[in-house]
Design a protein around this nucleic acid. Structure first.
Lengths: 119, 119
DNA sequence: TCCATTGTACGAGAACTATCGTAGTTTGAC
DNA sequence: GTCAAACTACGATAGTTCTCGTACAATGGA
């Protein structure tokens, strides 16, 4: 027996392939404050985070909606792991398609957060 | 008397100050294909261009709408000059607020255009 | 003054978006 | 099997956005 079976799960979620990712959709996904916040946290953590890790000021169903927009635009990758749904930035794909874009958006978000007095 | 009166005109248009520009609004403004195209042309030309210079596949009133979104988000500056309305990128403001952001978006747009076989 | 050019304002319709609440599904633990 | 946790699906609503067409306004030249 193998020591560790890959911790994956049944349900599969539809993701765009790298080639299908469109800049306009990525920018649109990032243009919402809630979603930008999620992306910032994912980038800060560097690893996968469950949906429930985020404490967004909206209901669960709205949260689901925002994560779906991020996934369908190609910004994040989502996989089920047990009852949780783990979210990870698609850094490799985004950096390959649009070098420097994600980093400058994240830097801009941090700068603005500092400027507006906070975080 | 001065040799050259500044070529300006009567009507003034409302612009956000540099401090009022919000990253989310900028990203939203850039997330529309029509507006992204306008910004690319403005960046390529480097100077001010009149609205009528752009040959967008929409009516004039829709064009007005898109230019307004760009102006109100702080991406472009608009001034009247005679019957024309000149549009210029607010590079200085954007680069100061969000260093590298505009350039990486423009680079991403070019890359995508090439990738999708064109321009 | 008259006119062509350039762009605006307004009203309207279709489409999309963000949000919610409720009911349901999947999973893992007991 | 039962139950709680985590998340989804669906339907609804309010707001925003994109688009148009028509009518209007400002400018500069003939």
């Amino acid at each position: 027996m193998t020591t560790a079976a890959p911790t994956s799960s049944s349900r599969e979620l539809p993701h765009p392939t790298r080639e299908e990712i469109r800049l306009e959709s990525v920018l649109h996904a990032l243009s919402d404050p809630m979603r930008l916040q999620v992306v910032r946290e994912l980038a800060a953590d560097g690893d996968e985070l469950s949906c429930s890790h985020f404490d967004l000021p909206v209901t669960k169903s709205t949260t689901t909606h925002h994560f779906r927009v991020l996934r369908e635009s190609g910004v994040i990758r989502q996989v089920y792991r047990g009852t949780a749904k783990m979210n990870g930035l698609r850094r490799d794909d985004l950096d390959d398609l649009f070098p420097g874009l994600l980093d400058s958006v994240l830097a801009a978000a941090t700068r603005q957060a500092v400027r507006l007095g906070g975080s």
